[in-house]
Amino acid sequence: METTAREPFKFCARLTLAEVTGRKAANITGLLEGIKAADDAIIYHHTHRYIKQFHHLVPEGANDFAYWVTNTVQADRLGEELTSIDIVQYHSLADIRGAFVKMLEWHIVKNPGPMRTVAPGREFHFMRAIRFSLPTEYSAGDYAGFIECLRNVSASSLYLHVFEARLRPPYGVDDFSHWFETQFHDAEVHKQLSRLDPYSYTLEGLRQRIIRVIEKRLAEASRA
């Protein structure tokens, strides 16, 4: 196993600014139409905001659409179905949007009767995320250095390299797995990190899980 990377891993951080589009939905049809018309920045905001803003919680309401349908429209079954949309299996925001559209269209076909409209003031507001990426002072060239950086980087850095990375080329791969694969040809770390479902951990839980995977590999390398 190689021990020093040709290219160091430079940790960055992701920050967002929330733009209010002015579009809102008062029922399921309005939500569907809004999602159909939404650009990637809107889908990104409503499927990823929760992770950052509530990163200390296990993200039960993993996306804003599901949370609103469950808690405001009080369509429990649909809410549960929207919650269960497995974002990790989609590699683009367009695909994520397609999954929500399909689920909502199916629901409307199956439930053609009168639709509940929420009270004024409780509508769903469509928002967009303006994304900023920032360099940080953390940079790693080997396993031990990577672990040290990972202990110290912010939650927004973890978020950028694990969640967002999967939505850009190479699609479906987080930046950490990609680095270990390309710099060290470490198929084991790549495999272990790639199969993590980050959406089912808190960010701190995820940080500890990734550290454990790499520590284990480092210990194996020391013994070898």
Binding site: L15, L17, K52, Q53, R128, R131, F132, P135
Partner: peptide, 30 residues
């Protein structure tokens, strides 16, 4: 701590200033 401290408030104002100064793009690399 994550969402309602003065530091986050200042950060949002500065991000907005950057957004307006750098040509209003959806992605901004600093």
């Amino acid at each position: 701590r994550e969402n309602f401290l003065l530091t986050r408030h200042l950060r949002d104002y500065l991000l907005l200033a950057l957004y307006l100064e750098t040509g209003r793009q959806d992605f901004i690399h600093l």
